[in-house]
Design a protein around this nucleic acid. Structure first.
Lengths: 219, 219
DNA sequence: CTGTTACCTTAACGCTGTTTACTTTACACT
DNA sequence: AGTGTAAAGTAAACAGCGTTAAGGTAACAG
C-alpha cells in the first residue's frame, strides 16, 4: 500500500509527470496543461498518468502544493538577513511576495485558483509555511515595538490582503504588471514602496507627531 | 456596415445570446459557459452565435464589459446617500465592492480574469466608471480634510488593492468567503470593518495624539 | 510454474471551440 | 416583377480535450 513498501522503481515516471506538468504550467499557464501534453513530454500515453493521479484535478492540485512549498521557501530565503522584529523584515516579506508573483506569474495565478487543501481555520495552517513566517514577523515586530499592538492574525491578514490585492489586480488588469500614471510608469514593487507611508501612518489627516520621528520611521 | 443602418431586426438574437451567456456564467461559472449551452438556451444552433460574435472569447469579453457596467452602477447606487467628502462614503464604496463580489462571485472572478480592454494609463479610465467614482470620493475626502493630502490616484490604488485583495484572497482560499479565527467566524465585510483602525491610523506604534480625536474618527 | 500486480498501450465516448458548405429569408435596385 | 445581395440560420465535420474500458507485458511471490 504505502510507497515505502516498494522503494525500488526502475524509472520514476511520477516525478517526470509532475515536472512536465510544472513546466507546461510555467510556460503557458493552465490552458497549456493538458493530460496529453504532459504525457507527450514524459514520453508515455495520456492514460498512463492515471496510474499516478486520479484525474487532472488531482495532478494540478499536487503541482500546486509543490509550488506552494517553493513559494514558502522563496519567502523564507528573502528574510534570513533581516533582523527579527524589524519593520524591514515585514517589508522584505511583502516585496518577496510581489517578486515571486511577478517572476512566476503563470503559476502564481494557478496557486490561488486551485488552492485545494487549505484548512478552514487560520490556526491550523502549517508550521513552516509562509503564513507562519509572516505571522512570526508580525509578532516580533509588535514585541519590539516597531508596530502597534493588535491581534497578530488580524494584522497578518491585513498586510497579506494588501500585497495580494496589489499583485492580483495588476496581474489581471495590466499584462505587464505596470501602471502608468501622470507620466511615470510604476511596477508592483515600486507601487508597494510608495504605499509604505500610507501603511505606516494611515490615512488620517496629518497631525503634529509625524515630524518628530522623521524619515527614519518610514518603513 | 454600421448597425444603425439596419435598425429593424425582427428578433434580437444577439440580446438573447448575451443574456443566456450571462445567466450561465452566474449559475455555473466560466466552465458552464459553452457555445453549445448558450445556443441551446437561445434555441439556435451553436454556429449561429458566430454571426454575432467572432468567437467565444469575444462573447465572454462582451459579457464581461456588460457586467462591469452593472458593477459600476452597483457602486454608484451604494453611495448616493453618503455625503461627499466623508470617510463614510469611502467606507461604503469598499463595503459595496465586497458585497458585490460576494453576491456575484461567479462572474466577479471572471470580470478580472477576462478584463479585456482596460487602458494602459490610469488617466484614460472611463468617466462614469467605478474608478472615477472612487477617485472623486478620495479627492473630496482630501479636500474636506477627512484624510491626508496625497496623490489621489495613489490613494485610490492603495485602497482599491486592499479591498480587492481581501475579496480575492477569501474567495479563492475559502469557498464561503469566511475566515475562522480564535473562535469567531468572520466574513469579508466583517474583516473589512475590523481593518478600519489599521487603515486610518496606520501600523505605527500607538502615539500620544490618537486619544485626542477619540473614537469618532474611527472610519 | 502460476497468479498477481504494476505499468503501459490503443480505442473509444462524449464533450469542447471552430470551420465549411449549404439553405432560407428578406430587402434593394433596375 | 425579377434579380442580386446580404443576413441569419442549419448540419456535418475536424481537432482537441478529459476520461473510461479492455487488453497486453514484465516482474515478482508463492
Amino acid at each position: 500500500m504505502s510507497r515505502l513498501a516498494e522503494p525500488l522503481r526502475t524509472t520514476d515516471t511520477e516525478a517526470a509527470i509532475v515536472e512536465a506538468a510544472r513546466d507546461l504550467l510555467a510556460e503557458g499557464g493552465i490552458r497549456a496543461l493538458s493530460m496529453r501534453a504532459v504525457a507527450a513530454r514524459v514520453g508515455v500515453s495520456a492514460t498512463a498518468i492515471y496510474n499516478y493521479f486520479e484525474n487532472k484535478q488531482a495532478l494540478v492540485r499536487h503541482v500546486v502544493n509543490v509550488s506552494f512549498e517553493a513559494f514558502d521557501a522563496y519567502l523564507r530565503s528573502a528574510v534570513t538577513d533581516k533582523p527579527e522584529g524589524s519593520v524591514e523584515r515585514l517589508r522584505a516579506l511583502g516585496e518577496a511576495y510581489i517578486r515571486f508573483a511577478l517572476e512566476n506569474r503563470q503559476y502564481f495565478q494557478v496557486l490561488f485558483a486551485f488552492h485545494s487543501d487549505l484548512p478552514q481555520d487560520i490556526e491550523e495552517l502549517p508550521e513552516g509555511g509562509g503564513y507562519a513566517l509572516f505571522r512570526q514577523a508580525v509578532v516580533d515586530a509588535i514585541q519590539s515595538g516597531s508596530i502597534r499592538k493588535a491581534d497578530p492574525d488580524l494584522l497578518v491578514l491585513y498586510l497579506w490582503t494588501h500585497v495580494h490585492g496589489l499583485v492580483t489586480l495588476l496581474l489581471s488588469c495590466q499584462p505587464d504588471a505596470r501602471c502608468r500614471h501622470s507620466g511615470e510608469e510604476l511596477n508592483a514593487t515600486e507601487l508597494f514602496s510608495k504605499f509604505h507611508e500610507f501603511r505606516y501612518y494611515g490615512l488620517q489627516p496629518e497631525v503634529a507627531v509625524r515630524s518628530e520621528t522623521g524619515s527614519a520611521a518610514a518603513s
